[in-house]
């Protein structure tokens, strides 16, 4: 099968998964005890007029499957209605926070790869040597350090003691130098554990691959050791890393809640915490749905990258 067809197949498979995500998100409000209207108004008493308008907005007078379809139709055009708590457009609220979270998660993910890949390679190639030992200790420390603690230590050291970076985000757009500088510490905080994880995973998968016969073949051909490692071994060793990376994204979003708190980062984590506290269900629903979709899309991307790296996957 060609790569193109494979990608199309994966996308075709992702569609029902995405629909599943929407069904789950939709059911979430209906699964709460009582009338869904209670959830939609955050379990507060509202005037009959408000209630009627919310019932109409969410089509609560229709059969449930029809409610779902109508809701899905709105969701497809990213229309989530208004929050009963803040009275604001839900998509606008979520839409401003999602980029911040994705930027942080993406930066942390890149950092994890930027640190984890070279370290993992060196550790595997020099395995048993001091570089390997050092990386092992560093990775253990990285995995064992709670990101809450790491974040605070970094913040106190570089923000307060040394004054190199701000403790709270600057008053600047997301895509600006000032913001990029500020994002360094949260990125390190969030990415460290993943970097350590990638290091160890890549090291062990490289070690397994280094013993493979094709590596001996490559060496016997007279290829440079660099080529053998970077071209032949790495691509194979990278496959498990790619697989885990998709799962790591969910992990990163989870970690983001803690990091967003320490670094006062206006991301989805904080929004969701606020919404859950206030039972702002439409916002929770939209947030969860968009995060779910992001994870599904990221995993689709992972599947495609995997197939690009490993032709056997394309069957």
């Amino acid at each position: 099968m060609s790569l193109g067809r494979y990608v199309l197949t994966r996308i075709a498979v992702a569609v029902p998964v995405l629909l599943g995500v929407t069904v789950l998100t939709f059911s979430f409000i209906h699964a709460l005890p009582g009338d869904p209207i209670d959830a939609l108004v955050g379990f507060r008493s509202v005037s009959p007029a408000t209630e009627a308008s919310i019932r109409a907005e969410y089509h609560l007078d229709r059969p449930i499957w029809e409610q779902y379809l109508l809701w899905l139709r709105d969701v497809l055009v990213l229309e989530f209605g208004e929050s009963p708590i803040t009275g604001r457009n839900v998509m606008a609220t979520v839409g401003r926070r999602l980029p911040a979270t994705l930027a942080l998660g993406g930066a942390a993910w890149l950092l994890a790869l930027a640190i984890g890949v070279p370290t993992g390679i060196v550790a595997a190639v020099r395995h048993g040597g001091p570089a390997d030992e050092l990386s092992r200790i560093a990775a253990l420390a990285g995995i064992a350090t709670p990101n809450f603690w790491l974040g605070l230590v970094l913040l106190l050291l570089f923000g307060v003691r040394l004054g190199w970076v701000r403790v709270i985000p600057p008053d600047a757009p997301l895509a600006s130098l000032a913001m990029a500088k500020f994002m360094l510490l949260p990125t390190i905080t969030l990415g460290t554990a993943s970097a350590a994880f990638v290091t160890r995973l890549l090291r062990s998968s490289m070690l397994a691959e280094l013993d493979a016969t094709y590596v001996r073949t490559a060496r016997a051909k007279g290829l440079r050791e660099r080529t053998v490692i970077l071209k032949h071994v790495l691509r194979n060793a990278f496959l498990p890393v790619v697989t885990i990376t998709g799962l790591q994204l969910a992990f990163l979003i989870d970690g983001a809640v803690v990091v967003e708190r320490i670094f006062s980062w206006p991301g989805m984590g904080r929004l969701l915490v606020r919404s859950i506290l206030q039972r702002d269900y439409p916002v929770i629903q939209a947030g969860v749905l968009l995060i779910g979709v992001s994870i599904v899309l990221a995993n689709l991307l992972v599947d495609i990258v995997y197939a690009v790296l490993d032709p056997r996957i394309r069957y």
């Binding site: 913040l155 307060v160 403790v167 708190r261 006062s264 904080r270």
Partner: peptide, 16 residues
């Protein structure tokens, strides 16, 4: 908006 108390103290001490 600074949800974390330790960060609030940090921001104060850093002059933010």
């Amino acid at each position: 908006v600074i949800p974390e108390p330790a960060s609030r103290q940090g921001a104060l001490e850093a002059g933010n």
